[in-house]
Design a protein around this nucleic acid. Structure first.
Lengths: 188, 188
DNA sequence: TATCCCATGTAACGAGTTACATGATTCT
DNA sequence: AGAATCATGTAACTCGTTACATGGGATA
């Protein structure tokens, strides 16, 4: 699996890493949380859980509360913790910055509980670097091609540009915030 | 098809609407344009073209240049033009704003050549309205739940918020720009 | 003539969607 | 007791991915 786990697989792995959860718990998170644009459909969640279990990254924690409802919760195994950490530690690639910022943000969201601040900062720096490169590419393309675009085409492209700039601004703020948090912690 | 055409189907339809294009043309657009995060894989493009042809939205324009390379270009049919316009005219739904802003931007990018400025402005207004509602929801969720999030979880959420705010700011600017363009046109 | 690139295709596979199925438990 | 809902699961289907196949025109 290690090489071919889905985004959903990793999302579930990370959520189970926060606390033991059942398929239903996970579905509720996706259904009630405005965050993550994952599907809460059972046809997606349960097969994904099965994959994780088959790979040995999660295992059922048999809480069979006397008289309670059926509930098949899972928790991380040793291998699961390692896989999760490995995933979170993956360096930021150019391709991800261009095609999968959501995936990067997903990883970032879960880093706090598993990585050291130093590693998280490195991630943010890599992210900023990638975003800047991508922005430069887009700006160059835009100045070269905008003349050939329709009004709305041009505007749509500008939407992408301003989104990217906002993302960069956010990432810089995030880096500062992490640094501040670290200083605070080391002084206490 | 009308009800179950893919995003890719519509993207190809819209691109063919700009000018007759072959599968290879379309693949090159996806491969060389930093825009649209569509795949240039033949396994995606050619089947999609086939679907469009079967539905009767596009038809081959047999340019068989004497001695030139093989090239199977397509152009829109009457039904294809209608389908494209219908798609572009779809009102902005809540669900799209939440789960598929990219799809909305895709539609917007192609509106210029097919809809009247008035319709485009209506779209933008609906978009802004949807974005504002969504932002309000997210902010409420955030103020309620941010205490329970990790540092990076909180930051990741804030990334979403600032992205949304940037999107709103862009949409407002776009609305103004369209209005200005219209005024200019009516005076000339 | 040999090789490279243009251009279209196909076959196997996997993941996610939709819709349905199945029990058990809580609520009225 | 009957209805609603909790909770897990499965089957059919479609799209997109990856990798391979083909065949002709350009280029050396």
């Amino acid at each position: 699996m290690a090489a071919r786990a889905t985004r959903l697989d990793y999302a579930l792995l990370a959520l189970i890493g926060q606390a033991p959860r059942s398929g239903y718990d996970l579905r509720k998170i996706f259904a009630l949380t405005p965050l993550a644009h994952f599907s809460d459909s059972p046809g997606a969640v349960y097969p994904s859980l099965r994959r994780l279990e088959r790979t040995g990254w999660v295992e059922p924690v048999s809480t069979r509360p006397e008289g309670g409802r059926r509930r098949e919760a899972f928790r991380l195994t040793q291998a699961g913790r390692r896989a999760l950490r490995d995933w979170l530690r993956q360096p930021v690639t150019r391709d991800e910055v261009v095609h999968d910022t959501d995936g990067l943000l997903l990883r970032f969201a879960f880093m706090g509980e598993w990585l050291e601040t130093r590693e998280i900062q490195a991630f943010v720096e890599g992210f900023v670097r990638g975003l800047r490169l991508h922005l430069a590419d887009l700006e160059q393309f835009f100045s070269r091609e905008s003349g050939r675009m329709s009004v709305t085409g041009r505007l749509a492209f500008e939407s992408g540009l301003s989104g990217l700039r906002a993302q960069i601004a956010w990432a810089r703020r995030a880096g500062l915030r992490l640094r501040a948090a670290e200083r605070e912690r080391s002084q206490s």
